[in-house]
């Protein structure tokens, strides 16, 4: 067992140095990126001041933050619209991706027959498909959803398929020996084994569904009350309202970061007890 007791032992210089190093790295991993960020923002501010750049070209960070506050009602209602599309499409991507993967896992023939279609759907740029979707689908929300879904579902499908197929051969033999049904094998063996792969795909899909939602809105060119952040950006661009453009951009980035962090945390919580990727390095 690796139950190392926490005793107050006298460390030799080498071990003491290692402990110090680890502590420094732990702090550094937070402080360094933050410090670089602060310096970058400060530099951005200085560039604006030193070069007398007008705010409709490059606003100072302070102005952007001010805009974020002033335009909050408008921006946040748009953010909600974008979030709705993002999460709905992510949910559909999970459903579709996992569902199709499970279907593929039932038979090599099904997988061989249909996987190429998924690849074609994936490699064709969504912007190029959109005019077609625009013709066939009337409902604005459905349009955007379909778009974001096409972008987001593939990593889940391909990762989950890989996971379902990479089960230890001996474990499959064990299930056969014990007379497991196809359903039992799927539920007790293949799905849990695919979990790390699925979560890896989910992390990618989370970001992609946001990108999909924004890109879809860009090409759809919606406007008016129920429009998302992408429309705000286009609008702000036309009006040379750079501060609002930056504010909207920051909101989108923050959303992406939050999605990534939440999915990383979810993945960690699910895998922490057993999967190598979630284990802390043991000295």
């Amino acid at each position: 067992m690796t139950a190392i007791e926490n005793r107050s032992v006298v460390l030799d210089p080498e071990e003491a140095r290692r402990v110090r190093q680890q502590r420094l790295e732990k702090i550094g991993s937070w402080v360094l990126p933050l410090a670089i960020m602060v310096v970058a923002v400060w530099f951005w501010d200085r560039i604006c001041v030193w070069n007398d750049i007008p705010k409709y070209i490059l606003p100072r960070p302070g102005v952007v933050v001010q805009t974020l506050q002033d335009d909050a009602p408008l921006l946040f209602s748009s953010l909600l619209v974008t979030l709705k599309i993002t999460f709905l499409s992510l949910a559909l991507a999970i459903l579709g991706g996992v569902g199709l993967a499970v279907l593929f896992a039932q038979s090599k023939w099904v997988e061989m027959s249909f996987f190429p279609f998924a690849v074609i759907l994936q490699v064709t740029p969504i912007v190029a498909i959109f005019p077609l979707i625009n013709i066939y689908v009337d409902n604005q929300t459905a349009k955007l959803l379909l778009c974001a879904w096409i972008v987001a579902f593939f990593p889940i499908l391909s990762n989950t398929t890989l996971g379902l197929n990479s089960v230890d051969r001996n474990l499959r033999d064990l299930f056969r020996l014990n007379g497991a049904t196809r359903w039992q094998e799927l539920w007790h063996l293949r799905l849990p084994a695919a979990m790390p792969y699925f979560l890896g795909g989910l992390k990618i899909a989370g970001g992609l569904s946001l990108i999909g939602a924004v890109v879809a809105e860009f090409v759809a060119g919606t406007s008016g009350q129920a429009s998302g952040l992408a429309s705000r950006i286009i609008e702000a661009g036309y009006r040379l309202n750079a501060p609002r453009l930056f504010a909207a951009l920051i909101l989108i980035s923050l959303t992406g970061i939050v999605i990534f962090l939440v999915l990383s945390l979810l993945s960690h919580l699910i895998l922490r007890r057993w999967h190598e990727s979630a284990l802390k390095q043991e000295a």
Partner: peptide, 20 residues
Amino acid sequence: PTLLPWASVFDNVWLPLRLR
């Protein structure tokens, strides 16, 4: 050993019975 890495020792030993 060919154990289910996500399942506890109990669940691993239970597995053959569970499948029945």
